[in-house]
């Protein structure tokens, strides 16, 4: 056990706890806020694992933009304050969901844990330059494809909202 291990376990426990709250809380916006906490602590995990750039990207894109959009969407689709029981699916469905979740955890742990040995690995110092070089060297074609994908997602989102705006019923000044 090194300091890194201890810090990581702290972050990991926090992340798992926040994630659990995010999927079980009965308040709509709180779920999104717990997700923020989860993603933030996961960014901390990345820092501990030496992936500084990934952690920063996580903060900038996930926390700074994606979550903002999620909260936005929640607020646009009615997000009243207070507890609501109509957020969860029926009990039998949740029971199966819990089984599925637990078995997924067990499956992944069973498959991956034997792969990682007990031996400690060295965490290299900052790898930003290396990661950048890899993105624009080895991975440049996937990178370009990704930019095309982003563009098409942008256009797709725009078209979806346009189509609905033309076909749907007006919803009283909530348009953005």
């Amino acid at each position: 056990m090194t300091t890194r291990d201890i810090v990581f376990i702290c972050f990991a426990v926090l992340a798992a706890g926040c994630a659990l709250l995010a999927v079980t809380t009965k308040q709509v916006v709180h779920a999104a806020l717990w997700l923020v906490a989860t993603l933030g602590t996961i960014a901390g995990c990345y820092f501990v694992l030496g992936a500084e750039l990934v952690g920063l990207v996580q903060l900038l894109i996930y926390v700074g933009a994606v979550i903002i959009l999620v909260i936005f969407a929640l607020m646009l689709t009615r997000a009243p304050i207070g507890k609501h029981d109509d957020l969860a699916t029926p009990g039998w469905q949740r029971a199966i969901a819990a089984v599925v979740g637990a078995s997924l955890t067990a499956l992944i742990a069973a498959v991956v844990l034997p792969v990682v040995t007990d031996a400690a690995v060295d965490i290299p110092a900052s790898t930003n330059k290396g990661v950048s070089a890899a993105i624009f060297g080895v991975w440049v074609w996937p990178f370009e494809l990704l930019s095309v994908l982003l563009l098409s997602a942008l256009i797709g989102a725009f078209i979806v909202s346009q189509v609905v705006r033309a076909a749907g019923r007006p919803t009283g000044g909530e348009g953005r």
Binding site: T89, I96, A97, S103, L107
Partner: peptide, 19 residues
Amino acid sequence: STGLLAVLSGGLIVLVLGV
């Protein structure tokens, strides 16, 4: 949601079988 449930459960079974 039941559709999702079926899909994820099925996917999980396939994974377990595969492993």
